[in-house]
């Protein structure tokens, strides 16, 4: 059975690109354009891994991760954050909030597939 990945990003171009990359790699994709939508999708169940942008309006990626971690269904799901910042402070903030992995933009989409494969065995 195909593993399901939730892609969260307010950029429609990014969702399409990352979604298509992951689908080509054999995963099933669902999308959300903001934190609240993403939490609703998580509540519906069936998600195996989350890829989320950090820089989003209203609920930023870090807050989203915290909220996702506080829910029973997503407490231990692998969550990979995408961000343009690579300062130590931010990375630690993400880790403290509960992120499993961190990819710095820009990155080659193939790298995302590599990282995802590491967490979805």
């Amino acid at each position: 059975m195909k593993r399901r990945i939730l892609v969260v990003d307010d950029s429609f171009a990014m969702r399409r690109m990352l979604g298509a990359t992951l689908e080509a790699a054999g995963y099933e994709i669902c999308q959300a354009s903001n934190g609240s939508e993403a939490l609703a999708v998580l509540d519906a169940g069936g998600v195996d891994l989350i890829v989320s942008d950090v820089n989003m309006p209203e609920m930023d990626g870090i807050s989203f991760v915290r909220k996702a971690r506080s829910r029973a269904g997503s407490r231990f799901l692998p969550i990979i954050m995408l961000t343009t910042e690579n300062t130590t402070a931010r990375v630690l903030e993400g880790r403290d909030a509960g992120a499993t992995g961190w990819l710095v933009k820009p990155f080659h989409p193939a790298k995302l597939v590599e990282v995802v494969a590491k967490f979805l065995v």
Binding site: A13, A20, V113
Partner: peptide, 17 residues
């Protein structure tokens, strides 16, 4: 696995505009 990512450029340009 190689997909042509250039197909998303349109989406990027539209969104960026």
């Amino acid at each position: 696995m190689e997909i042509d990512l250039n197909q998303f450029r349109d989406a990027f340009f539209q969104e960026a505009s």
